[in-house]
């Protein structure tokens, strides 16, 4: 699971109102190289919850993203490279995503999060 997916996932448990961002428990993180696509990054940037990405990438062992960011940063190649790395190249291979409200763990195994709910959570 890339952090772009993490940035798009919320806790889906019935009744949870504050399900984003899911806290990451990282057991195994791998880095998979992806071609840099500036247009994609510029398109996605406004849709990204920045603080969630900063926090998630830190949990995955990457602390290079600035806390605060403004769109003018997108003109910097250095920034784009860091944004790209955090968003698309850091992969949570094993671990869990934890609902911030209930503490319910959604396991991530072989890179795939399991968001299936139990009957009493739907």
């Amino acid at each position: 699971m890339r952090l772009l997916s993490h940035n798009m996932l919320s806790s889906n448990i019935k009744g949870v109102t504050n399900g984003f961002p899911l806290r990451i428990e990282a057991e195994k993180v791998v880095v998979k190289q992806v071609d840099l696509n500036v247009r994609f990054l510029k398109n996605m940037f406004p849709k990204i919850e920045w603080k969630a990405l900063v926090e998630a990438s830190r949990t995955m062992g990457y602390a290079e993203l600035p806390e605060e960011v403004e769109p003018s940063k997108l003109d910097s190649r250095d920034f784009l490279q860091k944004f790209h790395h955090a968003l698309l190249e850091l992969v949570l291979e094993e671990g869990a995503l934890v609902c911030p409200e209930t503490g319910r763990r959604f396991p991530v195994s072989k890179g795939i999060p399991n968001m299936l709910l139990h009957e009493d959570e739907v």
């Binding site: 772009l4 996932l9 889906n12 984003f20 999060p113 968001m115 299936l116």
Partner: peptide, 14 residues
Amino acid sequence: ELINTNIASGLETR
């Protein structure tokens, strides 16, 4: 990116 979920549950907000 693969997600084991019912339809798009968990993705619908963001």
